[in-house]
Design a protein around this nucleic acid. Structure first.
Lengths: 186, 186
DNA sequence: CAAGAGCTATCTATCGGTAGATAGACGGAG
DNA sequence: CTCCGTCTATCTACCGATAGATAGCTCTTG
């Protein structure tokens, strides 16, 4: 019984949001999945916005750690970028799911403000990391690097979305390969 | 008073879906927007799936006409591609909306089957058109062209999604420019 | 031409279901 | 004894969908 119910709820909720989006998440279904009553979910997360924001916050925080690990693991930009694209790939290989914040970005406009803020932060985290990566040894203007970082982030997210729609992870692989071939990715 | 109510309903529904997604569309709100009762919407579209499928079908059909017009309007691949990216740009400039099928793609998994089919067809239409465009005068392998077409479609969709999240159309422009600079777009 | 039958498009009213949210009882652990 | 976590039970609001009535148009037919 040690397994902190709050963490179990968050894990299940994350999986459900990655599969069906924030609006597709319901307290009842989530509670059933976890094996508690919906009132118990409300005990840990008073409102749905609280839950959504907690999910996105943890997701962005984890991203910071994971991505920093990549930069430390290799000095090679190409290798780091492959690790980066592989993270997004792993969401798809996990039952055709999306990046939590990627799918929430589509619902951006009717997200509670506190959720939206965390989703935006996830984007910031990614852009900052990509800027760091693309800056390595390059002397290009900061502005150009930022533009490139944003384009990479958008392209990877788009590839994930399209591949998921096709229900075929090979579509993701092909898109990434095309990005690399075109020179968008290092 | 000529304005066919069915068309008015579809126009309003499209705008609402482009802003808040398929799940964010409700018969009551839609009816209020149009100025009728929700029962009247059900008269024209018995189920929500019927309405969603009708929207996506019309959207895909219009896309075919518009895109073919581009190919006829210019022989230059770069010019055609700019017209293509400008179509997606115009959705953003129309009150920060998304491509109808782009936002529905995010909800792909819990879309009624008849809606999903039309959304998938929209993707097909785009890929086919891009293949046609990228094939002009190129002798590259069909497979490589298809891969490239898919990557372009995904990248443009991703740029739209990210730009919308940022609420800044300049983000879209910058991403597209970066794609062009990298050589992904002709 | 006129009368009536049937159709179209809309309305009011309501259905069963589910959403998020809350109050208060209960039981176990410190 | 008290506090924490979970439960039962319930609330209000909204969802998509349906039933049934009605006004007005159109078409047929004597």
């Amino acid at each position: 019984m040690t397994a902190d119910t709050k963490q179990v709820i968050m894990d299940a909720a994350r999986a459900m949001v990655q599969a069906r989006g924030y609006n597709g998440l319901s307290f009842r279904e989530l509670a059933k999945e976890v094996g508690v009553k919906s009132a118990s979910v409300h005990y840990h997360f008073p409102t749905k916005g609280d839950l959504g924001a907690a999910l996105a916050r943890r997701y962005a925080d984890e991203a910071i750690d994971i991505l920093d690990g990549f930069l430390k693991a290799s000095q090679d930009a190409g290798a780091c970028m492959r690790m980066y694209t592989d993270v997004f790939r792993s969401a798809l290989s996990n039952d055709n799911r999306m990046c939590l914040c990627g799918i929430m970005a589509a619902e951006h406009d009717d997200l509670p403000a506190e959720v939206r803020a965390e989703v935006d932060r996830f984007t910031d985290v990614n852009i900052r990391w990509l800027v760091k990566l693309l800056s390595r040894g390059k002397k290009a203007a900061t502005e150009a690097i930022e533009q490139r970082a944003l384009a990479v982030f958008a392209a990877v997210g788009g590839a994930q979305l399209v591949a998921r729609g096709r229900g075929d992870i090979a579509v993701y692989d092909e898109a990434i390969e095309a990005y690399r071939a075109a020179g968008l990715l290092p």
